[in-house]
Amino acid sequence: MERDRLVHIVDEVPGLDDRTALTMVLVLDGFLDAGNAAARAAQHLIDLSDGPVVATFDVDQLHDYRARRPPMTFARDHYTGYDAPRLVVRLLRDTGGTPYLLLHGPEPDNRWEAFCRAVREVVERLGVTRVVGIGSVPMAVPHTRPIALTPHANDPSLLTSDSPWRGELRIPSSAQALLELRLGEWGHPALGFVAHVPHYLAQMDYPLAAAALLEQVEIAGRLTIDLSGLRAEADDRDAEIAAYLADNSEVAEVVAALERQYDAFERAEESGQSLLAADQPLPTGEEIGRQFEQFLAGLDGPEETDQEGRG
């Protein structure tokens, strides 16, 4: 029945009828978004070209409201607003005017298989020829080294770079990963990139990772994206981090230990020797978390206010 449909697609989308290639960028907020990198990347695309919504998913069938409660506004004695979660597909254009799609919103909490079938309908109805997903995960890496990325694809010919991983890993699944798998089974090309975000910065906005992801979207999606604003944000954030480290030697030493471990790992990889440096102990996540607690609060927390009660 129509009311049970998970996605509503507009009947006519101008400018797509004669397209021989159409990329759809995929960003699902929640699980794969350390440093808010993927969500920030999606917002950057919308800021550059805020196009019309061409498909809307029925979030009521996909969202667990008790697990992820949407925010509301309460003004003195009444409710004034409700920020309903939205999972939509937008039609955007890159710097050169090339159209592409952006599927973005909260990751479905349930009905993943049904969600995949709904996305398949979007792909086939709108003529999508390639889906490019992006995400980010926290890793024990220093922010002073280049952003590493893990590429993946449902067709090896789609890969644009080598994976840093060897062998197999058992990982928690996600709707985004399942979608890539299912699209491959249905004959639709899909690939993606996961940025490695320093785990001590994973709870704050990290625009450098967002820029790194969009650089890969440009290559894989054959698009041109203006990243100047995002790179300026990344420079500002790096300056804030550097200033903090200059005034906090204990925290700086923790980062330096990560740098030594990272460099030792890189040398071992190049020489084909052991991947672990015996004399370079890696700081634990708990250690770094304790050292950076004030740092994170200082950069992203609210302004200090007077906490004394007024009777």
Rank of each mutant, 00 (worst) to 15 (best):
R237H: 13
T144D: 08
A278W: 01
D18C: 07
H196Y: 09
L87E: 07
D60N: 09
I9V: 08
S136C: 06
G229S: 08
Q261E: 06
E218H: 03
E2T: 10
D279V: 07
G272N: 13
R3N: 06
R125G: 01
D18K: 15
A67F: 03
I219R: 15
H143F: 05
P99V: 13
G309C: 10
P207R: 04
V119F: 07
R120F: 03
L101V: 08
Y200D: 05
N110G: 15
E253T: 10
A153G: 02
P198C: 08
Q61V: 06
G229F: 13
P156R: 03
T56F: 01
R3E: 14
D109G: 15
G309L: 15
V197W: 11
F74K: 04
G97R: 05
A34V: 14
V13R: 04
L48Q: 05
L179S: 03
F115V: 09
P156W: 02
S163Y: 09
L32K: 04
N110P: 00
E266T: 02
T284I: 06
V54T: 10
P207I: 05
L32M: 10
D47F: 11
Q261R: 12
G35M: 13
A202S: 14
H78P: 08
V53C: 13
L191V: 09
F292V: 05
D17P: 11
A234G: 07
V131Y: 07
G51D: 07
V131G: 12
G30V: 07
M24Q: 06
E293G: 02
Q203D: 12
G97T: 09
G51C: 11
E269I: 04
V53D: 06
E250H: 04
R40S: 14
L28Y: 09
Q291M: 07
L178C: 02
E286D: 09
E286I: 06
R86G: 01
T56G: 06
E124N: 09
A84P: 00
E233Q: 12
G272P: 15
L178S: 09
D11V: 04
S249V: 07
G30L: 08
Q61S: 05
V255D: 09
G289P: 02
V7C: 03
Y244E: 05
L103N: 03
P146I: 03
H196C: 02
M204A: 10
L181G: 02
Y82T: 03
V128E: 03
T160I: 03
V7G: 06
E253C: 06
D236E: 14
L103Y: 08
L282D: 05
L159V: 05
Q203C: 11
Y244K: 01
R267D: 02
R120Q: 04
D226Q: 08
T20G: 01
Y100K: 03
T98P: 00
W112N: 03
V7Y: 14
F193T: 05
E2C: 13
T56Y: 01
H8N: 15
D58C: 10
D47R: 13
E168N: 05
A220N: 01
S136R: 15
E233N: 05
E269L: 10
A38R: 12
L181Y: 04
R19M: 06
A39I: 15
G301Q: 05
T224W: 06
V251I: 09
V10A: 14
